[in-house]
């Protein structure tokens, strides 16, 4: 018996993302952002996308290419303060923005990846983030119902992958990637290093390949992945 090979070319796999797709995108700042997949998505030009990401990257980087190209209908995000273009798109009504508390975004995605319907939490219950949300009482305390979040597609970045899609991450490039890698109908992982089967020790497979649909090897680590000099 042998595990299947899921490696695929960048252009071919991104072409499978339709207009209107909900796309989960890994990364917190630069680390863990799948810059190459995002560039190809910007090049192919799919439209009406709903993006789910911790942050909006910085101007001229990552999902900013999609926002600048008018490809993003809605962004679900925790913070976009480092990207003036994203703030302008929000303020001018070119892009709908839904803010979510950071750990609650993580848990909504985790719930989506775990086949659950929602989570209950008191986070944000005294803030305007609670507006419009269903409240239920649990153990005598009011809790917000935060719906699970799944993507049609997830774009994640791994440091290392084998061709079955077992993934390993580097340092703070984990962030939302392991959660998103479980939470979409079609999970696409780009990887800095693509190894043969057995190349990732079973103890080191942080995302099991059974969750992953496609693996794309990066030809190069472009400048976007590098150190940001401020």
């Amino acid at each position: 018996m042998k595990l299947p090979d899921k490696s695929i070319a960048m252009e071919e796999v991104v072409a499978q993302i339709p207009d209107g797709a909900t796309v989960l995108v890994g990364g917190f700042g630069v680390p863990g952002t799948p810059f190459a997949l995002l560039r190809e998505l910007a090049r192919q030009g799919q439209r009406d996308l709903v993006l789910v990401k911790n942050d909006a990257n910085e101007a001229g980087m990552g999902i900013d290419h999609l926002i600048a190209g008018g490809q993003v209908r809605k962004l679900i995000v925790t913070h976009l303060g480092l990207n003036a273009n994203a703030i302008a798109a929000m303020n001018e009504g070119r892009m709908e923005v839904e803010f979510c508390a950071q750990g609650i975004l993580a848990e909504r995605i985790r719930a989506g990846g775990a086949g659950l319907g929602a989570i209950l939490t008191d986070i944000g219950i005294d803030t305007e983030l609670a507006q419009g949300k269903q409240v239920v009482e649990m153990n005598g305390r009011p809790m917000l119902v935060e719906p699970a979040l799944r993507g049609d597609v997830a774009l994640v970045h791994a440091a290392r992958a084998d061709c079955f899609g077992n993934l390993a991450y580097a340092a703070t490039a984990r962030n939302f990637n392991p959660l998103m890698a479980m939470a979409a109908t079609r999970v696409i992982a780009e990887t800095e290093e693509l190894l043969p089967l057995g190349g990732i020790d079973p103890d080191a497979a942080e995302s099991p390949g059974a969750f992953i649909d496609h693996v794309v090897k990066l030809d190069e680590i472009s400048e976007e992945y590098g150190i940001v000099r401020r």
């Binding site: 942050d55 995000v77 925790t78 913070h79 976009l80 303060g81 703030i87 923005v97 803010f99 508390a101 950071q102 750990g103 609650i104 986070i123 944000g124 803030t127 983030l129």
Partner: peptide, 9 residues
């Protein structure tokens, strides 16, 4: 209004 990130939690 950049979003609260992790501040609320």
């Amino acid at each position: 209004s950049p979003g609260a990130g992790g501040a609320i939690e």
